[in-house]
Structures are given as C-alpha cells and as structure tokens.
C-alpha cells in the first residue's frame, strides 16, 4: 500500500504544532491536511473523506471526546488516533471505548505515529472489504 494513498486529517488547536506535523507527514509521502477545531474537522470530513484522523483531545470548543463521538457516528469507517499532551487515563480509556484506534501522548515519535497511521489505515481497508463482501453476498442471495 502506497503511503500517498492514505488520507490523513489532523485536528489540533495549536496551529504551529499542527502545521509542523502536517508538513512532516507530507514529507513522509502521506496525503495529510490539518484543521484547527472539532467543528472544522466534521465540516472537512463532509467535504473530503479521510482514512485516518489524528485528533487532539484537549481543544477549546468541541473537545476531542465529543468530536470523536461525532466522527464515529457520521463516519463509522474512519479510524481515529487520539493525541494529547496531558496524560489522563480516564480520557484515554474513554476514547478507546468509544472506538478510537489508538492513543498517543505528546511528545510524538514520528516513526511511531507513522506506524499507527499505517495500521489504522489497514484496519479501515479490511473493514471496507468485509462490508463489500457482505453486500455482495446479500445481493447474490436475493
């Protein structure tokens, strides 16, 4: 799987960190873009699909957990990696239970992030294939 086929959306209110990370992901040949809030993220997902969302947990306005919940509701196939500077176990586990793919704490290790994005994308692809098969099967069964 070529990396540039993976569409990544970064959501973080810290603009300078967001820009640096997007740049570094693009440099690693990912199709990455960034937005500054949960609301913007939901808008962006409506316009352009993403495979993996990297989501800061602590943001003003709609926080990470709410955003995650909305993403899971409206785009159940999109995989979400949670990101935070403040280690907080309850939030981390809550996120995982709602269906986040994984949880990373800042400082972010680039290689680790990249592995996680690849793994998350692979999970999404498999999920899509499975659904495709079930649909094909139900149609064939009619």
């Amino acid at each position: 799987m070529a990396l540039n086929e993976i569409q990544v959306l970064l959501v973080d209110d810290e603009k300078e960190f967001l820009e640096t990370l997007v740049k570094r992901l693009v440099k690693r040949k990912l199709d990455a873009s960034g937005v500054g809030s949960g609301e913007e993220a939901l808008q962006a997902l409506k316009q352009k699909p993403a495979d993996v969302v990297i989501l800061d947990v602590k943001m003003p306005g709609m926080n990470g957990i709410e955003t995650l919940r909305e993403i899971r509701r409206n785009h159940p196939l999109v995989e979400v990696i949670m990101l935070t500077g403040h280690a907080n176990m309850e939030v981390a586990i809550e996120g995982m239970e709602i269906g986040a793919f994984d949880y990373l704490t800042k400082p972010v290790d680039m290689d680790e992030l990249l592995y996680k994005v690849q793994d998350a994308h692979q999970k999404k692809t498999l999920q899509e294939q499975k659904i495709g098969l079930i649909q094909a099967a139900t149609q064939a069964g009619r």
Partner: peptide, 10 residues
C-alpha cells in the same frame, strides 16, 4: 507517573 500509567493502561 501519570503519563506512564496512562500509556500502560491504553
């Protein structure tokens, strides 16, 4: 302590 505890549980 917090950061490591959280990372382990996740």
């Amino acid at each position: 302590v917090r950061a490591n505890t959280t990372a382990v549980s996740v």
